[in-house]
């Protein structure tokens, strides 16, 4: 299996000065665009990029403004993984060497409508790195609930009021669902921990076959946060334990960060418009769910 120490590390100092996602129309401070930009800088020129309907495709390809400075294509909303599989298969059949195909899909495009195609892609072990940038809702269509929208979130389809406290389900356990396919490499990440994300993309780049990264990527527009705090809030999510940093490799889970103490969940939630309405009881429910999850992860993965 790929050993990270063997791969030259990519960091801010040595990474290519070339920009591959530039002049796009994402909202100011968009976390998704940080994820796309950084990953492409690790992957480099010989990359085919496929993006399903969603914010990152919507802001990148508005004729004649073409913001991807490499080969890129918009796919159908459910068909990102399968189109990427086709690209990889086509490149292989044409004898192209040293190429990588990458997908950037939202949480909705990944955990909901695109899941079937993604499962097929991993099952076939196609040479594709699939990156899910998780902004926890369908943002491009105006902030509706997805399968990765966390408990309590107010969205335009889960309004918070007297009868319903916003979203009433917890996030799908996407990382473990992906790992259950016995994928060669899967990881979770956050743009709040950019070096960790770069390392994981780099590792996936050097792993042949299907790989997957679930990266937490803030959305100031959908979350109700100031544009300048996009990185900070994505770090807070990890520090309070609602988002965890982990890897799945050689059939083993690995927790990359296992803090003795978590930062305050309440502080994290209260910084964001989407959680403003939550009562202490709602917050307690979030904390309990977090603790259950961590207890299990620590027991099984450490």
């Amino acid at each position: 299996m790929t050993n990270l120490v063997d791969i030259p590390k990519v960091n801010a100092k040595n990474m290519t000065e070339k920009e591959f996602f530039y002049g796009h129309k994402a909202c100011a401070g968009c976390g998704g665009s940080v994820a796309v930009r950084l990953a492409l800088k690790v992957l480099g020129e010989r990359t085919y990029t496929a993006l399903p309907a969603g914010c990152m495709s919507a802001v990148g390809f508005i004729y004649p403004q073409m913001a991807f400075n490499t080969n890129a294509i918009i796919t159908t909303f459910p068909g990102a993984a399968s189109m990427a599989s086709g690209i990889a298969a086509g490149a292989k059949a044409l004898g192209q060497k040293d190429v990588k195909t990458v997908v950037f899909a939202g949480d909705g495009g990944t955990a909901d409508i695109g899941f079937q195609a993604l499962s097929g892609m991993i099952d076939r072990n196609d040479d594709v790195l699939y990156i899910c940038y998780d902004n926890e809702a369908y943002m491009n269509t105006g902030i509706q609930k997805s399968g990765l929208t966390p408990y309590g979130t107010k969205t335009t389809t889960t309004p918070a009021g007297k009868n319903i406290p916003g979203t009433v389900t917890h996030k799908k356990n996407l990382f473990e669902i992906i790992a259950a396919h016995d994928i060669a490499y899967a990881a979770t990440a956050s743009i709040g921990y950019p070096q960790d994300f770069l390392n994981k993309v780099n590792k996936a780049k050097h792993t042949k076959g299907a790989t997957f990264i679930h990266v937490y990527a803030s959305c100031p527009t959908g979350w109700g946060t100031p544009t300048e705090t996009s990185i900070e809030i994505a770090k807070d999510a990890v520090d309070c334990g609602l988002i965890f940093l982990a890897e799945f490799e050689d059939g083993e889970y690995k927790l990359n960060r296992n803090p003795k103490e978590f930062a305050s969940v309440k502080d994290y939630l209260k910084k964001q418009g989407r959680f403003k309405h939550m009562t202490d009881e709602d917050i307690q429910c979030v904390i309990e769910n977090r603790d259950r999850k961590w207890a299990r992860m620590r027991k099984q993965w450490l």
Partner: peptide, 10 residues
């Protein structure tokens, strides 16, 4: 989707 992807690289 896959055939489109393959066609899109020629």
């Amino acid at each position: 989707s896959a055939t489109m992807g393959a066609s899109a690289v020629g």
